[in-house]
């Protein structure tokens, strides 16, 4: 109880003179009020800890820089700093809204990881190599058109120019290539699904 006898103003003065113990008394004296005040605004223990810490960092900096003018209002001044930091916190969060994921709606039900897992990526490689092997079985002219269209992403116009046949012929070769591929897949019972 002896602590309470020393006024805030005196403690602040002592602290500015270099008495670190004065700050510890001030913190201990007011921590509950300031912490509760912040918590009443943010309703989150972790954020409250952060804001509380930032508040005192600001207090310490201001006092050590000698910018504090004592008007016998240490606690209201600290409260004002805390209040401003709480506003800063909400301002920051409104710019970057966060999903806390505590309600009934779960954000992860709509978001999914599009990258393949180990099993799926192995299947994908197998399917791709199977397709390659079947393509090799095709007659040369059909294979050529299919490779240009599907793997080199060329248009039928470009394919016809490159191979020296008409667009219709190129289209026909593509059609037969696909028909033949399906035939081979059916005959050999190849599963090409992921």
């Amino acid at each position: 109880m002896k602590q309470n006898l020393i006024e805030d103003a005196v403690l602040v003065k002592n602290y500015i003179k270099g008495d670190e113990n004065a700050l510890s008394i001030l913190v201990k004296r007011h921590k509950q009020k300031i912490y509760s005040f912040i918590y009443s605004k943010v309703y989150d223990r972790d954020i409250t800890e952060d804001v509380f810490q930032d508040t005192f960092i600001k207090v310490i900096k201001t006092l050590k820089r000698g910018k504090y003018n004592e008007e016998g209002k240490f606690l209201p001044w600290v409260m004002r700093i805390a209040h401003n930091l709480v506003i800063d916190h909400f301002r920051r969060n409104s710019r970057m809204p966060k999903f806390d994921n505590t309600g009934e709606f779960s954000i992860f039900s709509v978001l999914s990881d599009s990258s393949l897992n180990a099993e799926k990526s192995i299947i994908k490689t197998q399917v791709e190599s199977d397709v390659r092997r079947i393509i090799e079985e095709l007659p040369e002219d059909q294979k050529q058109v299919l490779l240009m269209r599907m793997y080199q992403d060329m248009s039928f116009k470009e394919i016809s120019e490159r191979t020296g046949v008409s667009i219709n012929t190129a289209l026909g070769r593509m059609r037969y290539a696909l028909i033949n591929l399906r035939k081979v897949i059916d005959q050999n019972n190849i599963v090409l699904t992921n």
Binding site: E20, V27, K31, Q32, E49, Q53, I60, K61
Partner: peptide, 23 residues
């Protein structure tokens, strides 16, 4: 909220910060 007080670590950090800071 029975225990509306900052964690001891937070208070310790503040006091240590104050000791470390010199202007």
């Amino acid at each position: 909220n029975v225990n509306l007080n900052p964690k001891d670590e937070t208070v310790d950090f503040i006091l240590n910060y104050s000791k470390a800071l010199s202007v």
